[in-house]
């Protein structure tokens, strides 16, 4: 108690300046994301059983078994080991993040850059398209895409590919919008005019000046994208459009199977995969929040900016 009391005063002003909150958020985000990555990469070593394993040396696991020594988190209605499937699920989540990033960042960025810089009719057309897609529920787009790609029946690659493409369809417009908005902002900066006046060609301006100044916000979107891709895959899985249980472990699918269990009061099949999603998304989101804070000049140089004009001040020499 005394320890707590003596510790409090120095902590409070820190939190008040914002730096403390920011640091805690960043740290928590890093730890959670690190744990997630470790789980995903070391999954086969950590998990007591395979994701599609129904039996071991003692025979069948049995269905809906209570948590016990052999199955710390019990078994599902289909007779899988919940702990193992939850651990294996991290791998699937990591795969979907990587696939979705690859499929959406590059096209979104390139389209945004070229369209925003060149402008004109093609730009307006793309903006219309992107806006229409942006306003549409990503989950519905994902459903349509997964019907297109796999007809709704999924192996690991098919299901992952479908989910990744679905996520990409709703993310390409987002990258496009963000990059384009940045490009249009940067394009109006005098330093781009300065390059134009001296006769620099459009491609050189785009790559040397505009692109480099327009991608500062991208790390932020990466993290949002990562969260969204997990949530979208889980949503698809929850609607029964995910990955078949014998191809891979997927948290959304397991939750779908757990709906009936919950009504019967069985908690251990729903909570672990759900927590898997929550903690993973929490980690990436905390990371992205602290990134936003870091990028926010108002937070970075609190107090000095509003009153002391940053520029025009002290003379040279």
């Amino acid at each position: 108690m005394t320890l707590l009391l003596t510790r409090r005063p120095p902590l409070r002003p820190r939190i008040r300046t914002g730096a403390g909150v920011q640091r805690v958020m960043l740290l928590t985000g890093l730890v959670l994301t690190g744990l997630f990555l470790l789980t995903a990469l070391l999954g086969p070593l950590l998990a007591p059983h395979g994701y599609a394993q129904l039996t071991d040396s003692q025979g069948l696991f049995g269905t809906q078994q209570h948590p016990s020594g052999g199955h710390p988190l019990g078994t599902t209605i289909a007779g899988y080991d919940v702990l193992s499937r939850t651990i294996w699920g991290a791998r699937t989540a990591l795969l979907i993040i990587v696939a979705a990033l690859l499929l959406s960042v590059v096209p979104g960025t390139v389209l945004g850059l070229v369209s925003g810089y060149l402008g004109g009719r093609p730009d307006r057309l793309l903006v219309g398209l992107a806006d229409a897609l942006y306003a549409f529920p990503p989950l519905l787009l994902a459903i349509v895409m997964s019907i297109v790609i796999s007809g709704g029946r999924s192996s690991l690659t098919g299901g992952l590919g479908a989910a990744a493409c679905s996520v990409a369809v709703s993310f390409v417009p987002q990258y496009f919008r963000v990059v384009r908005a940045e490009v249009i902002r940067v394009k109006a900066e005098p330093f781009v005019d300065a390059a134009r006046v001296i006769g620099t060609g459009p491609w050189r301006i785009m790559t040397r000046h505009v692109l480099r100044n327009s991608v500062r916000t991208l790390p932020l979107i990466f993290t949002i994208n990562a969260s969204e891709s997990i949530l979208t895959l889980a949503g698809l899985g929850f609607l029964g459009f995910g990955i078949e249980p014998n191809s891979a472990a997927e948290w959304g699918y397991d939750l779908n199977r757990a709906v009936a269990d919950v009504t019967a009061g069985i908690w251990w099949t729903a909570v672990p995969p759900g927590l898997g999603i929550v903690l993973t998304v929490l980690g990436t989101t905390l990371l992205s929040e602290s990134l936003t804070d870091l990028a926010d000049p108002r937070l970075r140089k609190r107090g000095t900016t509003p009153l002391l004009p940053a520029d025009g001040g002290a003379d040279d020499e």
């Binding site: 900066e189 005098p190 330093f191 005019d193 300065a194 390059a195 006046v197 001296i198 006769g199 040397r208 000046h209 480099r212 100044n213 520029d311």
Partner: peptide
């Protein structure tokens, strides 16, 4: 195109007329 480079331009706000990177 031919005159590009033969005109110099000084901008109002020196803070934004240089590429920050």
């Amino acid at each position: 195109r031919k005159t590009a480079g033969r005109i110099g331009y000084v901008f109002q706000d020196p803070a934004t007329s240089f590429d920050p990177l």
